[in-house]
Design a protein around this nucleic acid. Sequence first.
DNA 1: ACTCTCCCATCGACAGACGATGGGAATAAA
DNA 2: TTTATTCCCATCGTCTGTCGATGGGAGAGT
Lengths: 111, 111
Amino acid sequence: MGIKDGPELLPGTLELLILRTLAGGARHGYGIAQHLKSVSEDVLQVGESSLYPALQRLLLKGWVKAEWGASEHNRRARYYTLTAAGRRQLAVEQREFDRLILAIHEVLNTA
Amino acid sequence: MGIKDGPELLPGTLELLILRTLAGGARHGYGIAQHLKSVSEDVLQVGESSLYPALQRLLLKGWVKAEWGASEHNRRARYYTLTAAGRRQLAVEQREFDRLILAIHEVLNTA
DNA sequence: ACTCTCCCATCGACAGACGATGGGAATAAA
DNA sequence: TTTATTCCCATCGTCTGTCGATGGGAGAGT
């Protein structure tokens, strides 16, 4: 994951972003990347070499499942869906993330 | 950097946290770790094996300088101070961080 | 025919955080 | 006085995760 013309930041957050994206419905890999890019107004530019390994990890952990289908452009595409465990995991990671961001914010705003 | 009883999160943010801490005045390594822990109410627990390498990197980049002195407990300690370049870098990283957090927030709060 | 966008995926390199480890000096407790 | 605790430095090896480069292949437009 990177920011435009800049160094990569916040590794470890990608899985959370993916889980959250899939919570809005099934998507294929390419679609996930697009979604992140557009929703973040081009700030989040996830490369495919970051995305697919992450999806593999999520599959292995049983947080998402995948099935082949046809994309909206009539192409062969793999659709990823959140499992029940994935939904639980999303909640967990959301909490951890909020907690951490709050903590960092404390540091950044302490005189 | 890690959260209590949990997996590590947000690697890459450590340098920002250190720079921000030193913006409040010179500190030695141990003091930096303590500051992060206390300000964040024990959420941020930076181990020494994360901290010292990070400080070395900051030294190499010229963002902090170090000098030996005596700690408040009468021990030999290395005090780190922000350089002018470090101050500029802090501003840059702050902006990038805010930008990124905002982007992530967009994703997390989009239906 | 050709190119463009879409969509899959892997490989090797690299960065950064972590646990384990090791040392030494001041103070407090036994 | 021995012992333990806190304070303070630092490195090594490992592992996880991201990235650039690479390599397909199949529809759609020109």
